Amino acid sequence: MAKKSSIPFDKNGGTLVTQRRMLSSSAWLGLSPQAKTLMQLMQRHWTPKGPIGFGVRQAEKEIPCSRKLAMRIFDELVKAGFIVLVDESLFCSRAESKTRTWRLTWMPCWNNRAPTNDWEKRKDSNSTSVKTTPVDRPQVSNMHHSG
Rank of each mutant, 00 (worst) to 15 (best):
A35S: 11
A35P: 03
K36Y: 02
K36P: 00
K36I: 04
T37S: 00
T37L: 04
T37M: 01
T37D: 01
T37R: 03
T37P: 02
T37H: 00
L38W: 02
L38D: 01
L38E: 00
L38F: 03
M39A: 06
M39L: 14
M39S: 02
Q40M: 10
Q40C: 09
Q40A: 10
L41R: 10
L41W: 07
L41M: 11
L41E: 04
M42I: 14
M42A: 13
M42H: 09
M42Y: 09
Q43G: 15
Q43W: 10
Q43C: 14
R44I: 10
R44K: 14
R44N: 13
R44M: 12
R44Y: 13
H45L: 15
H45C: 15
H45G: 05
H45S: 13
W46E: 06
W46F: 11
W46T: 05
W46G: 06
W46Y: 15
W46L: 09
T47G: 08
P48G: 10
P48N: 11
P48M: 07
P48D: 10
K49G: 12
K49F: 15
K49L: 13
K49Q: 13
G50K: 03
G50H: 08
G50R: 07
G50Y: 06
G50D: 06
G50A: 05
P51E: 00
P51W: 04
P51S: 06
P51M: 06
I52E: 04
I52C: 01
G53C: 09
G53R: 11
G53V: 06
G53Y: 07
F54Y: 15
F54S: 09
G55W: 12
G55E: 15
G55Q: 13
V56P: 10
V56N: 13
V56C: 12
R57C: 14
R57T: 13
R57N: 14
Q58E: 15
Q58A: 15
Q58L: 14
Q58S: 15
Q58Y: 08
Q58T: 15
A59K: 12
A59W: 12
A59H: 14
A59P: 15
E60S: 09
E60H: 06
K61D: 05
K61T: 05
K61P: 05
K61A: 07
K61S: 07
E62H: 00
E62S: 00
I63D: 01
I63N: 03
I63A: 00
I63Y: 01
P64K: 03
P64Q: 01
P64L: 04
C65Q: 05
S66Q: 12
R67I: 03
R67T: 07
K68N: 11
K68V: 11
K68W: 08
L69I: 11
L69P: 03
A70S: 12
M71P: 03
M71W: 05
M71S: 11
M71E: 12
M71H: 06
M71D: 08
R72H: 07
R72S: 11
R72W: 04
R72E: 09
R72L: 09
R72Y: 00
I73V: 15
I73K: 06
F74M: 00
F74Y: 02
F74S: 01
F74P: 05
F74N: 05
F74E: 02
F74D: 00
F74I: 01
F74A: 02
D75M: 08
D75R: 13
D75F: 07
E76Q: 06
E76V: 04
E76L: 05
E76G: 02
E76M: 05
